[in-house]
Design a binder for these strands. Structure first.
Length: 263
DNA sequence: CTTTAAGAATGTGTTACCTCA
DNA sequence: ATTGAGGTAACACATTCTTAA
């Protein structure tokens, strides 16, 4: 009974939201893996650690015979433009078969195509761009309209950025939004848990009191039982074992289905 | 100078859709 | 017409790494 019991089970607790009609998946081919936080807030609760909550990652397609470094890429991608880049462009033939799976997708090419600006030494240096205020503002504005990017090249041109940079910004922005929402949800759940704990404590106490009352009354001679102190009903003349009739309705609120009663 | 938080960039896995044999 | 395999795009998520405070 109570929270202690719950903590020993495979709980599923979390907050869910209705899918936002403006979510990226509206135009995407892919259905949402997780519903993006929407403006409307109608949470449902699920608390991990059920089996289903764990995302079991299974490599779906691992073909070692075909993998072997960048053979696939060579068939389909354009060669690097510079000799210096050629060394880095090619996917290394991985000795680890588990690494092969990732090359089954064209994604790798995309990542490399857009990235890895070379510095003066011809070595790939990760340069980090700092967006200026106007760029950020415009991106934010665009994000407010659609959290999924639709006119990427246009926006990129407007911002004087690479399309990939805009794409990355949107991805990270979505992630940040989700993280923030998760933090908010976490706080909400904490408060909810606190309230329920207090309520549980109160009910336990009440139960204890009722039990001791019951004990006191059952030990009393039936003749002395005339008036119930809590409901003020008389108990004489009836069944001596059930001197008082119970109130027809319980006096408890369900704080989950009736949350307004909890505060 | 060091620490730290923010966020840009990268890597990886998954899914839907398309083409072709 | 159907089907399975391979390719591609788009995305989520985790992580790395740079930078400014």
């Amino acid at each position: 009974m109570g929270l202690d019991d719950a903590s020993n089970t495979c709980l599923v607790l979390g907050l869910g939201f209705p899918t936002n009609p403006e979510t990226p998946h509206k135009t995407s081919k892919k259905p949402p893996a997780t519903a993006a936080p929407a403006t409307g807030f109608e949470p449902f609760l699920t608390l991990g650690l059920s089996d289903e909550s764990y995302k079991v990652t299974v490599t779906k397609k691992v073909d070692v015979n075909k993998g072997g470094g960048c053979l696939q890429h060579r068939h389909h991608e354009e060669p690097p433009t510079s000799a210096a880049a050629a060394g880095d462009w090619c996917c290394p033939a991985s000795p680890d078969p588990s690494a092969v799976s990732s090359f089954s997708s064209g994604r790798v090419r995309r990542e490399r195509d857009f990235s890895s600006e070379e510095d003066e030494d011809g070595v790939n240096a990760r340069k980090k761009l700092r967006l200026n205020k106007e760029q950020s503002a415009l991106l934010e504005e665009s994000f407010k309209q659609h959290s999924a990017l639709k006119s990427q090249p246009t926006l990129a041109r407007q911002l004087n950025l690479k399309p990939r940079q805009v794409e990355v910004w949107f991805q990270n922005r979505r992630a940040r939004t989700k993280l923030k929402q998760t933090e908010v949800d976490c706080e909400l759940l904490k408060r909810c848990c606190e309230t329920l704990t207090n309520e549980n404590r109160r009910l336990q106490k009440e139960l204890q009191e009722l039990k001791s009352l019951e004990m006191a009354y059952t030990n009393m001679p039936a003749a002395t039982l005339t008036v119930c102190p809590s409901c003020e009903r008389t108990g004489g003349g009836g069944n001596p074992k059930k001197p008082f009739s119970m109130p027809s309705k319980p006096r408890f609120y369900n704080h989950v289905t009736n949350p307004s009663a909890a505060y």
